[in-house]
């Protein structure tokens, strides 16, 4: 890439994604903005339905175009994604931005071998012959540490274990050496022991290849492990973003505090686990103001009037800690050690 390392590789400005159906319009993403520098890792954290996967798919324009309305601006390596025609978009997918999907069993074509699928991805973007593509495919399988890679080249997806399948999918995503790798809960569908291996592999590859990465997960531990920066998403908005240490150790938004509180780790046996009361809002009828207000223990009148602006309160190593909560303005020193949740 010709970019200087300081210039952002990915710039998202006020992204809105709505799904238009016959009965309702669902506002899945409501004004998301962020920038990502080359080699940086952003973790997007949120529950199912918070819009994190939709945000990721919007970056590659993978959402069904007939039903989707997208507003705002997405720039990746100088490409204005939302304004590209189909051919230009296809040229960006793969060499510039690639994706690792959640469920490797369903995201790989079942009737083509791993080798065929990697070689096809390479030959779509580069004019090399089949033999060279196959050799590259083998190198990629070795890169993602698949044992006896030469044999696995001719294996069909169903012949591999879940962990190997996910490694194969990472190999396909890396086939054209993307500058940005999007990972959509890449470890969620895997066994706990395999999860850690895949996570470490992704982190290693990201560092070795110097890729930027956006890592979507609902697991805070996973996000903390791989990310430099974390964004907590709720009802289609980033409610809190900042350096991993800031967000994990000093969460400002009541929702983040609730997420940190609802964990099964480190809780003494017998004590009731804490949860966030209520359920995520209906995205077809979002409440006025802060979307979390109906579930929030600290909600006040101001929360229901308008969406709170992002407020900066310090930061770590140049990454500002931003929160959308009216309380942060009132007491910017609040460290949120009390968690407003009930059992």
């Amino acid at each position: 890439m010709s970019q200087a390392s300081s210039a952002p590789l990915v710039e998202v400005d006020d992204l809105c994604v709505r799904f238009v159906g016959p009965d309702a319009t669902v506002s899945a993403v409501n004004g998301v903005s962020f920038a990502l520098a080359p080699g940086e890792v952003l973790g997007i954290l949120g529950e199912s339905g918070s819009g994190k996967s939709v945000t990721l798919r919007a970056l590659m324009r993978l959402l069904p175009h007939r039903k989707t309305r997208m507003d705002g601006r997405i720039t990746i390596a100088g490409h204005d994604i939302l304004r590209l025609d189909a051919q230009a978009l296809a040229r960006v997918r793969g060499p510039v931005v690639a994706m690792v999907f959640q469920e490797p069993m369903t995201a790989l074509d079942p009737v083509f071998t791993i080798g065929q699928q990697i070689a096809e991805a390479i030959r779509t973007h580069e004019s090399i012959d089949g033999v060279a593509a196959r050799r590259r495919a083998l190198e990629l399988l070795e890169l993602v540490q698949i044992p006896s890679a030469a044999r696995r080249l001719d294996a069909y997806p169903h012949q591999l274990s879940g962990g190997l399948r996910q490694r194969a999918m990472i190999a396909i995503a890396l086939a054209c050496r993307p500058s940005v790798l999007l990972a959509d809960e890449p470890t969620t569908a895997l066994d706990a022991t395999v999860q850690i291996q895949i996570l470490l592999l992704l982190r290693t590859l990201q560092r070795e290849l110097g890729m930027a990465m956006i890592f979507v997960t609902h697991d805070l531990g996973v996000a903390a492990e791989v990310s430099h920066r974390v964004a907590v998403m709720y009802a289609g908005r980033f409610v809190e973003t900042g350096h991993v240490n800031d967000v994990v150790k000093r969460p400002s938004h009541p929702y983040t505090q609730g997420l940190l509180g609802s964990t099964v780790h480190g809780v003494a046996k017998g004590t009731k686990l804490s949860t966030i009361p209520g359920a995520p809002p209906n995205l077809a009828r979002l409440p006025e103001g802060c979307s979390f207000a109906p579930r929030c223990g600290y909600a006040q009148q101001a929360c229901r009037v308008a969406v709170p602006a992002q407020v900066e309160e310090g930061g770590t190593s140049g990454v500002p800690h931003l929160t959308r909560c009216v309380r942060v303005q009132a007491s910017s020193a609040a460290c949120g050690t009390t968690v407003p949740t009930t059992a």
Partner: peptide, 25 residues
């Protein structure tokens, strides 16, 4: 409606190439 079609699109494959995958499946 399967996810792998979206995944094929994410690899930058052309629509005719994707139709080939659909046919083969």
């Amino acid at each position: 409606s399967m996810e792998f079609v979206e995944a094929l699109r994410a690899r930058g494959l052309s629509e005719s190439r994707i139709t080939l995958h659909v046919t083969r499946n």
